[in-house]
Design a protein around this nucleic acid. Sequence first.
DNA 1: CGGTCTCTTGACGGAGTTCAAAGCTAGTGG
DNA 2: CCACTAGCTTTGAACTCCGTCAAGAGACCG
Lengths: 189, 189
Amino acid sequence: MKEQIKRYFNRYVDLNDIEIDMIYSKLTAKTFQKKEFLLKENTVCRYNYFILKGVIRSFYIDKKGHEKITQFAIDNWWATNMESFINETPSTQYIQAIEETTVLYLSKETLDLLYTEHPKLERLFRIITENMLIANLRKSDVFLQMRSKERYTFFAEKLPNFIQRVPQYMIASYLEITPEYLSELKKAK
Amino acid sequence: MKEQIKRYFNRYVDLNDIEIDMIYSKLTAKTFQKKEFLLKENTVCRYNYFILKGVIRSFYIDKKGHEKITQFAIDNWWATNMESFINETPSTQYIQAIEETTVLYLSKETLDLLYTEHPKLERLFRIITENMLIANLRKSDVFLQMRSKERYTFFAEKLPNFIQRVPQYMIASYLEITPEYLSELKKAK
DNA sequence: CGGTCTCTTGACGGAGTTCAAAGCTAGTGG
DNA sequence: CCACTAGCTTTGAACTCCGTCAAGAGACCG
């Protein structure tokens, strides 16, 4: 567990064992069961979750009462509702475990404390945030440039292992198409 | 000019006059004429531009040869192509001045240097990047939840001054609708 | 083996695009 | 200061993608 986060952090900054221990002592481990919620709508997202193992989804409920998935996250990704976490405002989204998922989590207060005590962490999270931003911009690009059929083939090629771990109606939701239409697309190709 | 950037920086971190001078000395001012390019497709985006005064747009050319605007930026915003700037890869987008625009710019090397010399800047840009990420997530939300008509009224209410400064076909492009259809929407309401 | 959850099929409708043409507006040069 | 032109906006008709609704077929789980 400590090894995994150490390897992850060292992709971005050099931290010695003492620093790792220091940070690690501030992280809390927790396992969520399948379908258990990490965050519910209208509550402030108090934590940033680092996924050690598992799959989670972020979604909101639209006007018609349908779930719209905005993000999946797996091993070695962070899961949080950024706006809610940073600004301490109520979230409009849910975060839920799709499979049994083990995380390490950090509260905002702890993170702010770590920032002032360890400038290296400031750098680490500056880089992580940059990567998140880039990932988000890329996602927007895909939706901007591709029709639904292309999005599906793109997603299917890029993340084949996902297709197996996640039910099809969730993939449809993430791709912003109806399950019915996705079914049609699969038939056509 | 120095006052403006000082006020902007001090919204996020406390910097004394010596620090401001230090940073300021690393920034280069430049004025771009209307329609002049800050960045062209297939070139690496070497700079991060802080807009002192003006309006710029980021766009790419789609398969059919149409310009698709992904971002506007005005006074006190940063303009760059994040992915290209951070990863030093060729950009798929253009950045262009819509009006005469004065900027302060920073190269990646300079910025990296400033980070190591001034941990406060690491914090500053960590926060700026968080804000950009949140703004981007919000934009995605708007496009996910609203039909084109709602997007137009939302944009028209939220940023009325924009509607005046930017031609309508650019607004249509940003809203991801055709100029023809935007014209129809305006008539209907 | 019965029920709930998931996936498929088909008919229909509507939001938004495409293409072509005409009407406007504003900037430019004479 | 007017006339011309290029760029911008509007109009309308035909078409397309994709959503909605309803119903049935599998598939998984207790």
